[in-house]
Amino acid sequence: MYKRLRDLTPLWRGSGVSQWGLAWRRLRRNKAALAGLAVVGIIGVMAIFQNYIALYPAKCLVGLQPQCPAASGRTDSWQIRVPPSLHDPFGTDGSGYDVYSQIVYGARPAFLVGIGATAISMALAILIGLVAGYAGGWVDNVLMRITEVFLVLPFFLILLVFLRVLEAGTGSGTGALWIIIAIIGVFSWSGAARIIRGEVLHVREFEYVAASRQIGSSARRILFRHLFPNVLHIIIVLATLQIAGSILTEAGVSFLGFGDTNTLTWGRLLTDASSNVKQAWWAGAFPGIFITLLVMGFNLLGNGLRDALDPRLRE
């Protein structure tokens, strides 16, 4: 009977479940969000255990090196553009690398870009959003003007210019992955900062904030003990969607030839394959599919989290 009642009122508050617990219950009932979580999880496992999941070691030409033998029965030693088979599930590309293994090795950079760039942009967004919303007055005004500059800026174009300029300025090859991550992060915080600021403006009017101020709490304590935890749900949603966006941005950068040529990213795999896609569609199709899958996973998760965490959007 007790169980039945709980099923009928899944958001029942009597059991002493925290707000986060309630959100998790809501998320658990959202099939789309769970699917997103599963995709992200599977690709995450791929990234962590890449050495066990890949068929061949990194940078190994199929058929040419003893560690990566060609399928038995194939006599040609240079195994380029071999169509998908049981031996090479996604085929081999125009250089003779196994596409499946390359994709496995590309999972780590994909997460690195998504999470790294998002960490930087969210750190900036949180700092600026919290301070602007809490301080108000001229501080708010100055910070919001700066935010507007970044909002209006054609982000992607500036990213390209920055990468090219750094490359020329340092005399090195194309930008290293961490530079791309840093620049995506530094230029993509503005939208989130504005949303966080808006939420802080709303939360800081609550009585518990006034009470805390009355008993003499420092500004830092109010910011990080009271305001931050109460805007955290929005930050989580924004961050998840930002991860998806950053991965897409990096793919675009790679496509235009401004990417890191020393790191195997899915964007680069797809770009390299696009020049001879007519001879070997598989070399481009699979990286493209994996980018789409991972981005979609994060998007689904982000949408699910928004439904689960933001009570005002709930029906």
Binding site: A244, L248, A251, G252, F255, G267, L270, S274, V277, G284, G288, I291, T292, L293, V295, M296, N299, L300
Partner: peptide, 13 residues
Amino acid sequence: LVGTSIPIFFLGI
């Protein structure tokens, strides 16, 4: 959702 997640150059190719 697939449409918002697919890189536009992949679609183009």
